[in-house]
Amino acid sequence: MQRVNMIMAESPGLITICLLGYLLSAECTVFLDHENANKILNRPKRYNSGKLEEFVQGNLERECMEEKCSFEEAREVFENTERTTEFWKQYVDGDQCESNPCLNGGSCKDDINSYECWCPFGFEGKNCELDVTCNIKNGRCEQFCKNSADNKVVCSCTEGYRLAENQKSCEPAVPFPCGRVSVSQTSKLTRAETVFPDVDYVNSTEAETILDNITQSTQSFNDFTRVVGGEDAKPGQFPWQVVLNGKVDAFCGGSIVNEKWIVTAAHCVETGVKITVVAGEHNIEETEHTEQKRNVIRIIPHHNYNAAINKYNHDIALLELDEPLVLNSYVTPICIADKEYTNIFLKFGSGYVSGWGRVFHKGRSALVLQYLRVPLVDRATCLRSTKFTIYNNMFCAGFHEGGRDSCQGDSGGPHVTEVEGTSFLTGIISWGEECAMKGKYGIYTKVSRYVNWIKEKTKLT
C-alpha cells in the first residue's frame, strides 16, 4: 500500500490518463441519441435557420407576430419608411378606419389613436360632414345658397324668414311668412316636400332668348283662358290664391305678392273693366268669414305684352289694390325667389296649380277651390304637342294621358313649387288646347323671366 501511494504521488498524470480511459469505455446513459432527441424537440425550422439574422431580410411573422416588435424591426421587413409607417399605425392600436367614419364618399386613412378623412370636392370637416359648395344638395341650405369668396357655403332665406341657429334652416321672422300653410287642420295635408338634388348652379339658368321682337298675326285659340281631375282644397291650404270678379264672377285667378299687390295673367284683364279681388276665398257660393274683398285701382301688364300681336306672350300683369290686405292664416303671400332659384325650383319637376275653373272641358265651374299636382314636361315634348308657338318664356306641365289639367277660369292662378315646406311661385296658368285632352298640356308663363320686374313694381313704400 505504501508503494502504491508513492507511485500516485510521483505520477499524477498517469492516474488522470487511467481515469479518462475508464470513462470513455463506459456506456453513456444520461444523453439520448440524435434521433430520439429530435422526437422530443420537434420544432419547425425557421426561415433563416442556421444563418445569422443580421444578414437576412426581415420576416413579418418572425419579427412582429411571434413577439412584439419595434418600429426598427418592422422597418427591416418593409425596407421602406412609408410602408412601415402605414403598417405601424394599425399594428400599434388597430384600424381606426374600420367603422368607416368618413361621410359623403370620403376616404379614410388610419393613424395612431386617430384617423384622417380625405374629402371629395365640396366637403370638409373631420368626417367630411361639412358642405362647402352650393353645387351639392344646395349646400344643405333649406332655401338659398351662395358661395363666399373663400368658396364656403353661405345660406340665406327669402323675405319674412331668418336663418336658424344651425345656419342652414329657415324659420319665420314674421307672423305670416310667405308660402307657408298655417291653418292647423290643413298642415297635415301639406304636399310632399321637395329635397334639393345635386345641381350645376353655374349652368342652372337656361341660355334662352326671349323672342321679344317676333311679330306674329293673332292666333285663334280655343278655350285658351284655361282644375280638371283635381281635388277639393281645404280652407287655408292655398292662402296665396285669390279669385278675380268682373263682368262675371271667378273669371280668373291670381296670387298675393304682398298686402297691396296681386300677380295674374295679362290676358285676364281689360282696361276700363272694374275688377274686384277676393282673398281668403274657399267656396265661392258661401260666406265663410275668411274672405277679404278689395278693388283694383291700377293694372300693370308687362311692358312687352301686346294682345294685338299675341294674347299669351309675356302673359303676366300686376294688380294694385285700393287697401292693403290683412295677412292671416287664410290670406298669405306666395314666396318669389330670384331668377336663378325660381328656375331651379321649376326644374324640380312638379308643381301645384289651383283655381275655381271648370271641372271638365266646357263644363261647370268649381264651387270649392280645386288643386292638382302636375309634372313638368320637357321642352321637346311640349313643342311636338301643339302647332302653336311655345315661346321661351312659357313652359308645359300636365299629363300625356289627359284627364287632369287646369281649365277655363283658372287662368292667372299660381303654379307653385314647394321647397322644404315653403311654396314659391314658378308659373302662372296661361293657356292650353281644350282641357285635359290626351297628348295636350297646360301652358304656363315662366315666372323666372319676370321676377325682377315683379319685385321692382310691387315694392311697398
Rank of each mutant, 00 (worst) to 15 (best):
T276K: 07
K455G: 04
G230W: 15
L372H: 14
K459E: 12
S204F: 15
A317S: 03
V228P: 06
L318A: 03
K146I: 10
H400I: 12
N213V: 10
T458M: 03
N166G: 04
A250E: 07
I40K: 10
E124N: 04
H314K: 02
K362Y: 06
V451R: 02
V77M: 12
F399D: 10
N113M: 09
K347H: 10
D405N: 15
L460K: 12
N113G: 07
R140V: 05
M437W: 11
H361G: 10
N100C: 04
I17D: 02
K137W: 07
T426P: 00
K347A: 14
P235V: 07
T458F: 01
F348R: 09
R140D: 10
I316K: 00
D410Q: 15
A173Y: 10
P414Q: 15
S329L: 04
N104T: 00
N222F: 11
I428Q: 03
S11D: 04
F196M: 07
H314S: 04
E79G: 15
G432L: 03
K247G: 09
T386N: 12
E270Q: 14
W453F: 04
G272C: 05
Y371D: 03
S169E: 11
C18W: 07
Y391H: 15
H415Q: 01
Y371T: 13
R449P: 15
I17A: 05
L319W: 02
Y161R: 04
N222T: 09
Y312E: 02
F360I: 15
W356D: 02
D249Q: 12
V92W: 08
E193P: 15
F388E: 11
T84I: 04
F395L: 01
G421L: 03
S187K: 09
L383T: 15
H302Y: 14
S385Y: 15
E27K: 06
D223Q: 13
F251P: 06
T422G: 02
G179K: 01
P301D: 03
C178R: 01
G421H: 06
E340W: 11
D378Q: 07
N5S: 12
F71L: 12
T85P: 09
S184E: 11
H282D: 04
F121E: 04
R62A: 13
G363Y: 08
C407M: 06
Q2W: 15
K459D: 15
K387N: 15
Y305R: 11
N100Q: 10
I7A: 15
V242C: 03
E340K: 07
V181A: 15
N80H: 09
S430E: 03
C117M: 00
E79N: 11
A279W: 00
I428T: 02
I210L: 13
R379A: 07
K274F: 06
Y450F: 04
V374W: 04
G21Y: 13
W240G: 00
L327Y: 07
G427Y: 01
P197M: 14
Q408C: 12
F78W: 10
M8A: 14
K126Y: 10
L103M: 13
L318N: 00
S49I: 11
R191K: 10
E66Y: 05
A37P: 15
S255F: 01
G442Y: 05
T426L: 01
E171I: 12
K68D: 14
L369S: 12
R373K: 15
H302W: 06
N452W: 05
E76F: 09
C69K: 04
H34W: 08
R449C: 14
K45P: 12
V419A: 05
Y391C: 10
H361Q: 05
